[in-house]
Computed example of a mutant assay.
Amino acid sequence: MSLNTPISKVRGLGSAKSGTHHWWMQKIAAVALIPLTIWFVASIVQMTQADYFTVKAWLSSPVSAILMLVYIVTGVYHLRLGLQEIVEDYVPNKGPKTFYSFAILFGCTIIAVACIFSVLKIAL
């Protein structure tokens, strides 16, 4: 027996009234990471014997730089969603939950900005 009303089942809303948006975003990010990770690993494997200037030239190409930035942003977004889900599911008190949520957002933002800056510094 479900505690949801029939209309909430149709709308996809749970008890928190937020629906499945968070779940869908995490799954979409995960699916997007599959080809990006294959591209990244294949690129790194091809450059195992490359020197610094070869890697810099590779990352300076627009396609590589854009794919790397998309990979970073998608990966950090997926990380944030996963960590947020852990906090929401396993931290019972509101005070620590709020602190951890802000810490996750701040930490992921710092990671994303540092990675984006690094890619742009090499690529430009």
Rank of each mutant, 00 (worst) to 15 (best):
V73D: 05
K27F: 13
L59K: 02
Y90N: 07
I122E: 12
D89A: 13
A16L: 14
Y77R: 02
L33W: 05
V76K: 00
H78T: 03
A30N: 14
G14T: 08
L83A: 09
H78A: 13
G14R: 09
I86W: 15
Q46N: 13
S60D: 11
M1C: 12
F117N: 07
L3K: 13
H22F: 15
M47W: 03
A114Q: 04
S64M: 03
V63Q: 04
I44P: 01
F40D: 02
I44H: 04
W23S: 10
I44E: 03
A114C: 08
S60M: 06
S2R: 10
G12T: 02
L105W: 15
I7W: 13
G75Q: 01
M1Q: 11
W58D: 04
W24T: 04
C108L: 01
L3T: 11
A16D: 15
L105D: 08
T109K: 00
A123L: 02
L120S: 03
S64P: 01
H78E: 04
W58M: 02
G75N: 02
A32E: 06
S101T: 12
Q49I: 05
E85D: 14
A112I: 07
I122Q: 03
S64F: 00
W39E: 00
H22P: 01
Y90G: 00
K121C: 02
P96M: 02
S64C: 03
T37N: 05
A42C: 09
S8N: 14
A30H: 09
S64Q: 03
G14F: 11
T109H: 08
E85V: 05
H21T: 13
A65M: 08
Y71D: 00
F117I: 10
S61D: 12
Q84Y: 03
I7Q: 15
W24V: 09
V10W: 09
S118K: 02
L120P: 04
K121W: 12
L67W: 01
K9T: 02
S2Y: 03
I66Y: 05
S18F: 07
K9C: 03
M68D: 00
I86M: 11
G75H: 05
W24D: 05
A103Y: 08
S101F: 10
I111Y: 03
P35H: 04
I7V: 12
A32F: 04
A32D: 03
V55L: 13
K121D: 08
T48P: 01
G82L: 06
L105V: 05
I104N: 07
L79G: 13
S18Q: 15
L105I: 12
L59A: 02
I111F: 04
Q26P: 04
Q26A: 12
T48L: 15
G107A: 10
W58P: 01
V91N: 06
A50Y: 04
D89R: 15
S64K: 01
N93G: 01
V70T: 08
N4G: 09
L81S: 05
T54M: 12
